[in-house]
Amino acid sequence: MLFSPAPLHIPDGFLSLIISLFFWVITVVAVGMAISKTNKTLGEKQVPLMGIMAAFIFAAQMLNFPVAGGTSGHFLGGTLAAIVLGPWAAILVVTAVVGLQGLLFQDGGLLVMGANIFNMGILTALIGFGLYRSVINANKTTRLIVAGLGAWLATMAAALLASLQLWLSGTSQLQVVIPAMLGVHALIGIGEALVTVAALAFIMQARPDLLDAKAVVEKGGRGWIYGGVLISILTVLLSPFASGDPDGLERVAETMGFLDRGLSASYQILPDYTVPFLGETALSTIVAGMVGALVLLGILVLIGGLLKRRAS
């Protein structure tokens, strides 16, 4: 079969409503920003370039290569897109790809699409572009190694976050889902890293103008470096902790008042997430989820603003 569903495309039904809506809110804001940013940098070319690049990612995902024992790795492409096209364009491109895969092929659900776009598009753009931009003035070998590392880490981060989302939704138990997802994606990530490096080396040779330091810097500010490095460190620290001692993570969550009731109804998993005057209804959960997402966004924007002021 040409088209194999990747384990990162979460279908509908596997994430709780609150988690789904939470990530939808963040994703909508990020995609909105991506639209206006790329519109500014690309102008009239935005639509054809983004559309064709999305088709490129879709088609490139069919490029498989034999790994071992009849299994084959296949290319995901998010990191490559983030480095060559820039993080905002990459977010837009991956959004289109995930959107089409969910709508047309039911590869990934609709209600959970916000989470899927966040995991595969926004995280990848942060890590892939952020790390690469931090070594933009280094020599070619260093840049390629960091790009490969970024591709691997972006895959791992997406798998880690997907596991956490499944756990918070009460779908999977942490001690099972974390080692399983991270184990599989550590391998997928190696394939992704190798292909990304080779593709990047090819493009550097054929079209050096696309990847010179000035072109890369124009596509995203220093904020991406901070964000990318921060998330990479989080991923590196959290992954062994979560897979080695999942009970530990659960304990942390418990002491933070995250999970004090069992895993009953899908939307009761975060019992603190209710709005007093609405009572414990579905509407209350939805509102609470949105408020939570907006508060988080506010904090992120604030941090971003502070970083920007310090940088300038």
């Binding site: 070319k45 054809p48 370039l49 559309g51 064709i52 690049m53 088709a55 490129f56 088609a59 490139a60 490029l63 498989n64 290569f65 034999p66 790795g73 290319f75 492409g77 490559l80 060559v84 394939g191 190798l194 292909v195 990304t196 490096v197 080779a198 593709a199 990047l200 080396a201 090819f202 493009i203 054929a206 079209r207 696309l210």
Partner: peptide, 21 residues
């Protein structure tokens, strides 16, 4: 080596698509 072949194909496809756009 096999991953590199796939990578070269991806790079080539990328540039062709870029020029097509």
């Amino acid at each position: 080596w096999r991953a590199r072949v796939a990578g070269n194909m991806a790079g080539q496809l990328f540039l062709r698509s870029y020029e097509r756009s």
